[in-house]
Amino acid sequence: MTEQANKQDLLSIEDLSIVYEVDGETTYAVNGLNISLKRGETLGLIGETGAGKTTTALGIMGLVPNPPGRIVSGKVVFDGEDLLQMPKEKMRGVRGNRISMIFQDPMTSLNPVMTVGEQIAEVILIHEGVSKKESCRKAGEMLEMVGIPAARAGDFPHQFSGGMKQRVVIAIALACNPDLLIADEPTTALDVTIQAQVLDLMKDLKSRYNTAMILITHDLGVVAQVCDKVAIMYAGEVVESGDIRDVYENTKHPYTRGLFGSIPDLDHSVGRLNPIKGMMPDPTDPPSGCKFHPRCPDATATCAASEPEPVLTETGHVARCLMLQSMVEQTDVNRVQG
């Protein structure tokens, strides 16, 4: 990647690897991950349980619990600076201020003994150096912005419904007008009609403030409705990524195809679903070669022997599959640099 490309990206993750070490066993949570994101862009990070989505998010935020977690290698370049090399004090000024995060479960990510107003004001007070009164006023504004009357600032989390609590969490995350918002399954715990409200709200706020967003989810539909770019994760690796239309319509990786085959389509009825056979590999003992080969319908002997490199598809997105690699090599198309 050239210097110039780096400058355009708000966030660029290069070769990030994170492991968890428990009782002498090493879990390879994230392996050599590459992601980049420009200002105002939304990236959907899709994967199943244990794919390493949340660990990636924690890695960006500098919140990987250590021990047992450890960042083995890589760079997380945010606005030109490597967050992994940043002193703790300085990182504290970035976190919650320029990068903020929405967690999956609004029921557990709010403090039950603080009013929601205090919880929003807390972030503003810490990062913006304003008076307490001013932070409270701004907290009220934030509540109004997410569609909750400011008069409810004095209420406690248990007095709100699930959808309202998630709005409060969003208000906290956006309180300091961050450049990057990481939303980890922000609507998974919500009902569909409430999910639609929350997604609309996030889309609206994002476009209003030109915030870049990483949306972590397992729901291909949510990503289709909200994101510009997508990265599919499997066993700690990004197996396919690129422009959303390209990935959804010219799907190249067998795992991505498997995911699409697994969900019932509302527009076209099928008699039977086409699931991916088998299960996620054991992260303490990942398979050799391509991590997906034991479950892959197209796997050959080569897939177990060598690790696939990222390949640029003819339509312009990146996929990591040996079958694709050999095809591309034959047709002599340039390979992307790792």
Partner: peptide
């Protein structure tokens, strides 16, 4: 109708006319 229109479709061009429900 609101319930069906709230399902996020996996088809990119399928932007259903949302009937966003007010309140909970």
């Amino acid at each position: 109708r609101a319930l069906l229109s709230a399902i996020p479709s996996i088809h990119l061009d399928h932007k259903m006319e949302r009937e966003v429900l007010q309140g909970e």
